[in-house]
């Protein structure tokens, strides 16, 4: 290839014209090629993982699990369809956002929405089909089960993609995520006696963004679909409520990790010490968890469900201990990553 500075459009030689005239696809193709140039280990690591995956598919235990899935097609079909629908709906959201905030957005060129929406799904479908063929060729899967699983995967992707695409309304400019977070009144003495208190709300706000209604709605949808047949209403409500609590607690922990690292980058040049930083980041997260678990335990006790109460108590204790460990570990790691030292 000619390496003179302005070799006119050199690397586009040999690239089909239809691709060159579609900037989103062209840029994505170049990005894909550049990942190998930039991160040399990605391609070899991917190939190794593929080989390990292919080998795993020939194992009798995996074959047995696949046979079981083929014998009970409904749960596999429903969960795969739901996963595909959710992925497609999210992809559609990302694609529509790119029409507004991408560097290519101002161009008078095709946005290639359909191709960009279908390509990842087609690639996943190809990988799943290849997996079935490998399992079949390796002898771990019978041909009847392979055909059933192939039909499940194909049907789930077809229906899931359609449901996901049409269930999400295209929004030109999405509402910002912090739309879900309450803005609190500042303390009256914020200027005279500044404290680290706002830092403690950051993780709470972040968690509220993670559990915003549209995300919870989709997760709840999957849980509702996977509820066993013949279950009574009270149990179904209890399962969904339990899921919500676990999601919220999980979101709090995830937010805690994220905020610890973000805040450390922001505060790297301050003399903030480990204890104050950990307290500021973590104490409201722990309080929120204690509050949530207290309510759950109280309600369970009030309804006289003593057996679940013991389980809940154990889960609550485990969650609080895990959160304390997460605060300590995340803050330590975050401070170390930006060179903050505890005096």
């Amino acid at each position: 290839m000619d390496r003179t500075p302005w070799a006119p459009l050199a690397p586009t030689r040999g690239v089909p014209r239809w691709l060159r005239s579609r900037p989103f696809l062209f840029a994505a193709a170049l990005l894909g090629m550049n990942i190998h140039r930039r991160y040399r280990l990605v391609l070899p690591a991917g190939l190794v993982l593929l080989v390990i995956g292919a080998f795993a598919l020939t194992l009798p235990a995996v074959g047995h699990a696949l046979e079981l899935a083929a014998q009970n097609p409904l749960p596999s079909l429903v969960s795969l369809t739901a996963a595909c629908a959710i992925a497609t709906a999210r992809r559609k959201g990302r694609l529509h956002r790119s029409l507004v905030d991408s560097w290519l957005a101002p161009l008078a060129a095709p946005a290639s929405l359909l191709a960009r929406a279908l390509f990842p799904a087609a690639l996943q479908l190809l990988v799943l089909a290849a997996g079935l063929v490998i399992a079949l060729a390796g002898g771990s899967l019978s041909s009847a089960a392979a055909i059933t699983l192939g039909a499940i995967v194909g049907g789930a992707y077809l229906v899931g993609s359609a449901v996901g695409w049409f269930s999400r309304q295209a929004k030109y400019a999405a509402a910002p995520d912090f739309h879900y977070v309450t803005v609190r009144k500042p303390r009256w003495a914020w200027a005279q006696a500044p404290r680290l208190e706002p830092l403690s709300y950051w993780a709470i706000g972040q968690a509220q963004v993670y559990v915003k209604p549209k995300v919870i709605a989709r997760a709840a949808f999957v849980v509702l679909l996977s509820l066993p047949m013949g279950i009574d209403g009270a149990s179904a409500v209890a399962i969904v409520a339990g899921l919500w609590v676990l999601l919220y607690v999980g979101a709090l922990m995830l937010a805690l990790l994220r905020v610890a690292f973000s805040a450390s980058r922001w505060l790297a040049l301050t003399s903030l010490n480990y204890v104050r930083f950990a307290y500021a980041v973590g104490y409201r997260v722990l309080l929120a968890q204690i509050w949530t678990w207290a309510w759950i335990l109280l309600l369970t006790y009030a309804t006289g469900l003593y057996r679940p109460l013991r389980v809940e108590l154990l889960v609550a204790l485990f969650s609080l201990i895990l959160s304390c460990a997460a605060v300590a570990g995340a803050v330590r790691a975050a401070m170390t990553s930006v060179g903050m030292r505890s005096p």
């Binding site: 459009l9 690397p11 586009t12 060159r20 005239s21 579609r22 900037p23 062209f26 840029a27 170049l30 990005l31 550049n34 990942i35 930039r38 560097w103 290519l104 161009l107 008078a108 060129a109």
Partner: peptide, 15 residues
């Protein structure tokens, strides 16, 4: 993850 040359090419090709 694109080089400056690639960005210019993508834009030029799109136009």
């Amino acid at each position: 993850l694109l080089t400056g040359r690639q960005c210019l090419e993508v834009y030029a090709a799109a136009k």
